[in-house]
Design a binder for these strands. Structure first.
Lengths: 193, 193
DNA sequence: GTCTATAAGGTGATAGAC
DNA sequence: GTCTATCACCTTATAGAC
């Protein structure tokens, strides 16, 4: 699945062939079929694995801060260290979204995970409203979808162009500035190390 | 090119075949080769066309407002009416970015256009600094890349899930709220109608 | 400028030996 | 569980009639 993630994050689904993935994993294409019944199944298993692992980190980060700002800063901080080892595949994340829209049946588990992501961001938005940083009449769902899109798709797109550690830290700090109005250090995360 | 844009915005490059595009345009696959020498060339021509048209609208929108907030609001307002007719292809935009990263030589014209987009957003950021809404030590380039990513990739991803006119208006208003702190009506644009 | 027919090349998946 | 060999299918692109 790691080899698949690497390949699927560098080219679109149809352009990645089983030989490429197998080579990355040190075997031949046919051997993959001892572990996954099809290319589709490998893609879905990999995407679900990545999404599940990152969901746990997302939940912990959001719960870690006393204010919505610090919680959100902790979410952004995940990308600096790639805490889970599965956060640096933004193009794979986009590919999953595209295929999910095209084929909702095959991606029912992914759709459930996506709803959990949105729920996490909805919690963040609710806290921002309670703390007086967003008006009470904001649509919690739309604001949550947007925050999630800003982080995973927007920031992800920028990180595709700028990949050095220094640049990623700058991207994260600037995103925090644009979205929360300040660069708040993600203290709880740092204590984890 | 319109037919190609429709198809390329609904599935990834390799999953769209020439017959699909031709059918959308009312011909057979072979006929396309009287207009474009290859599938790649058709994709690039379509992407460049879309990008150029939207760049003109982006420039006008950014220049239209007295403050950076109103300029940015005008940019967001473009998506409500799809002023150019070429703004509702967010998945095509993402696909272009992926292929551009993979094959920089073939996309040299697109890379030039992308730099012009960034320059437009850099102007917006500079004005925000001058107006005291962003600190002077912000990286103009990174902030501009992020704003662009938030709008085209972040908001685009949300619009892929919510496509009704009402939802798009709500997405745009909420994005304005999250990124500028207020929902500012894009007056100059409205006067254009 | 569009069509039908087809060549040429690549890929997912399977069979069967080890 | 991995390999080699191969099948079956699909797609881009071209040839040549109209």
């Amino acid at each position: 699945m790691r080899a698949a993630a690497v390949q699927f994050s560098q080219a679109e689904f149809s352009e990645v062939n089983m030989e490429d993935i197998a080579a990355e994993a040190g075997m031949t294409g046919a051997a993959i079929y001892n572990h996954f019944p099809s290319k589709d199944a490998l893609f879905i298993a990999t995407a679900n694995h990545m999404t599940q692992i990152n969901l746990v980190a997302l939940k912990r980060a959001i719960e870690s801060g006393p204010t919505w700002r610090s919680g959100f800063a902790a979410v952004l901080a995940l990308f600096v260290d790639d805490t889970t080892g599965w956060l640096r595949y933004p193009l794979l994340t986009s590919a999953v979204q595209l295929k999910m829209l095209q084929n909702r049946e095959k991606f029912d588990e992914m759709l459930g995970l996506r709803r959990e992501y949105v729920a996490q961001f909805e919690g963040l938005v609710s806290r921002a409203v309670a703390e007086g940083d967003l008006p009470a009449d904001v649509s919690t769902n739309v604001a949550a979808e947007l925050l999630m899109g800003f982080v995973f798709n927007g920031m992800g797109a920028v990180m595709s162009h700028m990949r050095s550690e220094r640049e990623i830290r700058q991207i994260v700090d600037t995103a925090s500035l644009l979205l929360t109005g300040s660069v708040e250090p993600a203290l709880p995360n740092k204590l984890d190390r």
